[in-house]
Design a protein around this nucleic acid. Structure first.
Lengths: 280, 280
DNA sequence: CGAAGCTCTCAGCGACCTCTGAGTCAGCCA
DNA sequence: TGGCTGACTCAGAGGTCGCTGAGAGCTTCG
């Protein structure tokens, strides 16, 4: 099937360009085929009136905005995008969003100014900041004290979605079916908030990447995910590596999750990986 | 039928660019006439109002566009084709498609731009990208943000159709008769997402090609498929092999699917193969 | 400043898949 | 019946895919 080849080669050339010049190639570039399949497992969030949550995406990079918009819409949420502060405020007044994804670097206005005005429009809005890694973390830290959150670029889609889901949940959006922020597949249980995982009651210690990968698998039980899909969702968009890392991390997960027990992680040769409860 | 030849040559040259000149002996690879018979088979997808899904095919290669259009129409869907970004958007406004098959290499526009405009026209449209395996220029190998997907050239028609069906299903097109992503013929059951096949409840292990072939047969129960048709749909269009492989893989399938049981796979001498439920 | 942990690269091995070739069998027609 | 064509199967070469150990660069933490 489609392996990561084209992607890989492309990254290669990008890397060459950017290795000479510094950091990330213009973002947006390789966001790409991020979540090709999967409407995923966890029950959707809804507003008190039963309608889907409303999210406003504010970023001046149209490609990045497009990808984010798509990813969030895919969660079943109502999404609108804006490319600068002025447009954002207009959209906010119209949409009255529950949450805003806000790039702190905007062409016309300072992100924080926008933030202030946003709260005037809708006081209880929660905000997920997008910020460069080396940006003034203190200011962010100060701002996010109020229940907001932030992620640094480059990020993975899985991460943005998870954070946003966390914000919305804390802001009072209920899950329709279940209550807890827990993923359960067979005797494998993940508490997303506490970042704890247990298999048959026994705790499983995972590194951040392992956790993220397992979350993706548990969100899509019984569904084969290709290495490319996994790469696109778990790793950040500027990752230049090959699909090989996925194998590596699957191998790590197996050692920790399946360790000696009956395996839940299965390889489907030529297709990808599946997580499914042990059947007898 | 249409000339398989010019098409073949065209594909061949494309592939030479990308393969670096791999040697595929010219063979009677004739795409087309794969789907020029009448409809049947798997439970069709429908839109909520009962009408067939609408799909827009955007590709600047008229031969490829034609082949795709034919294959999708054969699924019972309403299909329109466009050869560039501008035409595509116009067609999208008119047709309001549920899904778009989009070649990322378009003469006039950037794939990202088209994608953005498409979403403006119809926010919930889902997109299947076609991308060259190593196209240096397509910085978008995929762009899949939401419930989108992509396939790399050269692809097999079967793969495109399956992916598109997956997208449509997840986008809310219900099957008229059945619900799940499952194909059922007699006691033979295929779960496309989990990539699992069972016969009379017992699991059947299949290699990727075997799986693809069986999917084609199960999508066309009780219909005779010629070896050429099978070759065209299961193998990618640049495959240089002969029809002999089909016999070989049918033989493999028989060992695994029919193994000792009453046969479901039948040979129609001089015509092809059929899959049908066991009758008594 | 050293230790520990995390992420990723590299390389080797083993298993599996795909396809070729050749030999055999089965059906069809003169 | 003999000859022909089409279909089936076996065996095997070659390639691909996936798994894992070893270790290097980096960050974090004490």
């Amino acid at each position: 099937m489609h392996d990561g080849r084209s992607r890989r080669e492309k990254f290669r050339s990008e890397q060459i360009q950017s290795d000479g010049g510094g950091n990330h190639p213009s973002a947006g570039v390789m966001l790409v085929h991020a979540m090709n399949t999967t409407r995923s497992g966890p029950p959707p969030l809804t507003r008190p009136d039963g309608t889907p949550p409303r999210v406003l995406v504010v970023d001046d990079d149209p490609d990045l905005a497009e990808v984010l918009t798509g990813a969030l819409r895919y969660q079943g949420w109502e999404v609108r995008a804006a490319s600068d502060g002025v447009t954002a405020l207009a959209a906010a007044r119209d949409l009255l969003p529950d949450a805003v994804v806000l790039d702190v670097m905007l062409p016309d206005t300072d992100g924080f100014a926008v933030l202030r005005r946003l709260h005037e429009v809708k006081p209880d809005v929660c905000v997920l900041f997008l910020t460069a890694r080396d940006a003034v973390e203190d200011r962010i830290a100060g701002i996010t004290a109020g229940g907001d959150d932030y992620v640094t670029k480059p990020f993975s889609l899985e991460e943005v979605v998870a954070r946003l889901r966390g914000l919305l949940r804390r802001a009072g959006m209920a899950r329709t079916r279940e209550e807890g922020p827990r993923l359960v597949v067979g005797d494998l249980v993940m508490d997303e908030d506490a970042r704890e995982v247990t298999r048959a009651g026994e705790p499983v210690e995972l590194s951040p990447t392992e956790f993220e990968l397992l979350r993706l698998l548990m969100s899509n039980p019984r569904r084969v995910l290709s290495k490319t899909q996994i790469l696109d969702r778990v790793w950040s968009y500027d990752f230049g590596g090959r699909a090989h890392v996925v194998e590596l991390y699957i191998s790590y997960l197996r050692k920790k999750v399946d360790a000696g027990r009956r395996p839940m992680i299965h390889t489907v040769r030529g297709a990808g990986y599946v997580l499914k409860p042990v059947t007898r």
